[in-house]
Design a protein around this nucleic acid. Sequence first.
DNA 1: ACAGCAATTGTTATCGATACCTTGATATCG
DNA 2: CGATATCAAGGTATCGATAACAATTGCTGT
Lengths: 319, 319
Amino acid sequence: MADLARVAGVSKITVSRALGDSPLVNRETRERIQALAHQLGYKLNVSARNLRLRRSHTVAVIVEMKPSHDRTMLDPYPLVLLGGISQELTAHGYSVLLTTRQGATAAAVQAADGLILLGQGSRQDAVRRFDKLGLPMVVWGAPGEDDEHVVVGSDNRQGGSVVAEHFVRLGRRNPVFVGNPHHPEIFERLNGFVDALAGHGIKPLLIRRDEFTLASGMDAMHSLMDRGVPFDAVFACSDLLAMGAIRALNRLGRSVPGDVSVVGYDDMPLAASFLPPLSSVRQDWQEGGTLLARRVLSMIDGEPAHSEMLGVELIVRET
Amino acid sequence: MADLARVAGVSKITVSRALGDSPLVNRETRERIQALAHQLGYKLNVSARNLRLRRSHTVAVIVEMKPSHDRTMLDPYPLVLLGGISQELTAHGYSVLLTTRQGATAAAVQAADGLILLGQGSRQDAVRRFDKLGLPMVVWGAPGEDDEHVVVGSDNRQGGSVVAEHFVRLGRRNPVFVGNPHHPEIFERLNGFVDALAGHGIKPLLIRRDEFTLASGMDAMHSLMDRGVPFDAVFACSDLLAMGAIRALNRLGRSVPGDVSVVGYDDMPLAASFLPPLSSVRQDWQEGGTLLARRVLSMIDGEPAHSEMLGVELIVRET
DNA sequence: ACAGCAATTGTTATCGATACCTTGATATCG
DNA sequence: CGATATCAAGGTATCGATAACAATTGCTGT
């Protein structure tokens, strides 16, 4: 910048101001300096700027990246979320520092201006650990009972209730919920489902399955049939579970959607091309990322920020 | 650090050295200062350190994050790759700056010590653009004809040849390749496949399909049957294509693996629980990330680095 | 003609850590 | 015993940008 100042015949500070589009410098001078900077290939030294401004213009995103724990790592969604976050932050001159839970003690993370936690849902201890850093923080997931921090997530409760209404509209009277209610987000889906059905005097059956696999979905249907329980609708808390269920039902001689309606969750790409095309609840992950980013930025700017749930959409296909 | 020095009764530089585990300071003093730093909750100012050292201790990772372009965004693999990268870099005191192609002009990226490009395979123009930054750079993908930059990727050629050998071992004489050879990585798979088969006097058929979906795989089989072409083995360059193919074959009255052997690619989680369990070529993405990180670090340290291909593994299941 | 004001540019200090060069104290040697 | 090596620690300058305050210029109104 000093060099640039010399060439332009002005002082360093004028250069600084000119490049920062400050109205304090004459427009002519400003444009001349900007052109010169571009021409000379000048690159701002971010470290120096950060040091002086006492800001890193960086938001640390902490992702659960251990494969096979939960399932986070094997889903494409966190990446879409990251895409949304990245886009929004970049647009505001911030950058994304990606870390795992393990790497989060690194100095660079502590230097961040804000924190976004992904896939830490059930790990309240982890959340608290990062809370201690005293940084603006936003968590992705289901709002906990003790709302100490700002949470952004998709409205799982609504997800449950739209499916319930859908089943009721179809005249189903004996719906089943398949999933792992231990998981906070899925617990919310179950709650929304149960509450909405209760409004119609219906009480669903819960089949707990911890794995999000085809096999697990098939198994659930088999055990249901074995017990001879009557049912005419299945709400699976993942598309894979739903697909497994459909396959098992077909094999057991029950038609979908003739005898049983099935709805999955996430609307994964495969869902549309499954046979029959799967009905599913879709969440807008990109939008979620954007919102997460907006919230941290607000908090960084000292504005108050509140938790928010994003609406979901039931995609009705043939099941 | 100045405060810390005052409290400890030494000078700033001694504190700096003590915290850096420098042998220049007495071990007693060093340990005393470290304990004190911990106790007082001292946090290193990364920006200041970076400024002085003229290094950001940061590697920018540029990911293609536009959904539906290619398919990168909807695959879980880039995230696994990121996991490997992140883990390795963190272990060496570096952090990961995540960006999209769009955001890559940001100042923070130019300040990085190195660059990792993911999912830019076919976009040679983009690669060149980043090359101009003059930073140590490693690209994930297939090695191009003009090997200007260091490339790390899984050995697609080997992927093709192991499948070929597998088919030959099974006595198949009329194999078909389904996929999009326009894609450099897939082009390599095709090459490996064709060359290995040629060694046995077999010439496979190529069916070009650009989409990586179930429907596309089914469609491929239908057009094959319609044309009345004889074939007894299918190598699909994605698991989804393979699953579609199997479904179509079953529907058309041909048994898998009785009449036709089918092998997919990627060994996605679903592959194992598909019915019948899908044979597929597995790549170790985590390992790939680790290797990418190692290469950039080498280059940052001024050591020469060369391209490298990671081995793949054929998982033989029932198809 | 001159105070008063706006517009523009410059001077100096500062953010926090570390490299280079010194200095003082102790140990070792012929 | 003096000279040199070794160890421990400090003084000062520096990385590159920007904030606070200062200074210059030209213009306006009375």
